[in-house]
Design a protein around this nucleic acid. Sequence first.
DNA 1: TCAAAATATATCGTAGTACGATCTATTTGC
DNA 2: GCAAATAGATCGTACTACGATATATTTTGA
Lengths: 157, 157
Amino acid sequence: MTTQTRIRRLVKRPVSKAADEVRTVDYHALARFRYELRRFLAFSETAARKEKLTPQQHQALLSIKGFSHDKPVSVGDLAKLLLIRHHTAVELIDRMTKLGLIARAADPDDRRRILVRLTAKGERRLRKLSRIHFEELSASGEALMDMLQHFRQSGHG
Amino acid sequence: MTTQTRIRRLVKRPVSKAADEVRTVDYHALARFRYELRRFLAFSETAARKEKLTPQQHQALLSIKGFSHDKPVSVGDLAKLLLIRHHTAVELIDRMTKLGLIARAADPDDRRRILVRLTAKGERRLRKLSRIHFEELSASGEALMDMLQHFRQSGHG
DNA sequence: TCAAAATATATCGTAGTACGATCTATTTGC
DNA sequence: GCAAATAGATCGTACTACGATATATTTTGA
């Protein structure tokens, strides 16, 4: 048996017996779910790095673009959207500005705030990545959905 | 408007117009999905740290427990299951062994391989965490499922 | 209206951890 | 039985998130 085959068998093992026993935690289902999650995140990371972006940079571009509807997001907004500390967001924005992916602009309404927007370069990279991710999610998001459904069913039994 | 309210509005904005336009990528949907993903991972990290575990340590415990059915997993198996390099797994296992969470054992069938198993301490921590995660997933996995369903529908349109 | 408190951004030093490069031990294949 | 492949371990490096702290601006309240 090759190692790849071994891993496949470890992961895609037949439905766990533990699901029948009410008091027992279904470790295999949880482990599979986290494995699928990691697979998606690994896919995403690989796709991002092909576009010369770190995963965080990709996430930042997506959050800035996806959540700037009425008004651009600020440094603090981005921190909250990425669930990181303010100064971590500042550093991330520093690096991305240096790379020409985004640009800062003072908020005229509140001069403490700094608004962030994508540059043309940032837009291009994000568009490409988002198309790829959309396809991946409409295709292989199935495994994740199956697992989530499994939890919903057993959770309310 | 409080900042929390602002973030909530940024995230839970009404359905994006972009979904109608076929050639346009729905950035807001992708951004929301990733936001929900980060929220789950942040929940998981907080829960793990309450049990004095790093997220990676929690993942390792879960993978070892959840994928050791016929035979314990080896160092290399764990690396593949966690999608990390062999030596990263070695280092992770080193740290966890030092903390008394897991234990190494030589594989009698292949003396190159080292098998890994949970200690009683590791079992206790994982059981507690897994119950919490199971509840979280059966409850608030809903948001994730909604997003995934959205991608499935639009993806094949 | 002006000082104190709150809010927003920025800077610096530190620490955790994943990785590449490299090494040793064991097994497998010809 | 020797070369190649596989498995695990060691060491130095680099990235990045964080805590502590500093500065600027706005808001609050006497």
